[in-house]
Amino acid sequence: MGRITQYYHATSLEDAFAKAKQLGPVAAYVGGGVELVLRRNPEITTLIDLSHCGLDYIAASREGIEIGSQTTLTTISRSADIRQYAGGSLAWWAGHIAHNNLRDMITVGGVIGRNQPWNDVVPHLVALGAQVRLFDGTERITPLSDYIEAKQPGAIIKGVLLSAGNAGSRGFLWRFTRTQQDISTLHFSALVNCDGKVMTAANLVFAGRPGHAALYPRLSEELVGKSLSHETFARLAEMAPDLVEVGTDLRATGEFRRELVRAAIVNLDEHMTGVAQ
Score class of each variant (00 low, 15 high):
Arg3Asp: 12
Thr5Tyr: 11
Ser12Ile: 10
Phe17Asn: 04
Lys19Tyr: 11
Leu23Met: 10
Gly24Cys: 09
Val30Phe: 05
Gly31Asn: 02
Gly32Phe: 04
Gly33Arg: 09
Val37His: 09
Pro42Phe: 03
Thr45Tyr: 07
Thr46Gly: 06
Asp49Thr: 08
Ser51Cys: 13
Leu55Trp: 03
Leu55Tyr: 04
Leu55Gln: 02
Asp56Trp: 06
Ala59Val: 15
Glu63Arg: 12
Gly64Lys: 01
Ile65Gly: 00
Thr71Val: 13
Thr71Lys: 06
Thr71Ala: 10
Arg78Asn: 10
Ala80Ser: 14
Asp81Gly: 07
Tyr85Phe: 14
Leu90Asp: 04
Leu90Thr: 02
Ala91Thr: 04
Ala94Leu: 04
Asn100Phe: 15
Asn100Ala: 13
Asn100Met: 14
Leu102Met: 11
Asp104Gly: 15
Asp104Pro: 01
Gly109Pro: 02
Trp118Lys: 11
Leu128Phe: 05
Ala130Lys: 01
Gln131Leu: 10
Leu134Arg: 03
Leu134Pro: 01
Leu134Tyr: 05
Asp136Tyr: 05
Asp136Thr: 08
Glu139Ala: 11
Thr142Cys: 07
Tyr147Gly: 01
Lys151Arg: 08
Pro153Asn: 02
Gly154Thr: 01
Lys158Trp: 06
Lys158Asn: 08
Lys158Gln: 15
Lys158Leu: 11
Leu161Ala: 09
Ala164His: 09
Ala164Cys: 09
Asn166Thr: 09
Ser169Thr: 06
Gly171His: 01
Phe172Tyr: 12
Trp174Ser: 09
Arg175Glu: 13
Arg178Met: 14
Thr179Pro: 07
Gln181Gly: 09
Gln181His: 14
Asp182Gln: 08
Ser184Phe: 05
Thr185Val: 14
Ser189Ala: 14
Cys194Asn: 12
Gly196Trp: 08
Lys197Ile: 07
Val198Leu: 08
Val205Gly: 00
Gly208Ile: 05
Pro210Lys: 03
Pro210Tyr: 05
Pro217Phe: 03
Arg218Gln: 15
Leu219Phe: 03
Glu221Asn: 10
Gly225Val: 05
Ser229Phe: 03
His230Tyr: 08
Glu231Tyr: 07
Glu238Arg: 12
Met239Leu: 15
Pro241Glu: 05
Pro241Gly: 06
Pro241Arg: 02
Asp242Phe: 09
Leu243Met: 15
Val244Asp: 01
Glu245Trp: 05
Thr248Phe: 09
Arg251Ala: 12
Arg251Thr: 10
Thr253Gln: 08
Glu255Met: 08
Ala264Cys: 14
Leu268Ala: 04
Asp269Tyr: 02
Asp269Glu: 15
Glu270Tyr: 11
Val275Asp: 12
Ala276His: 07
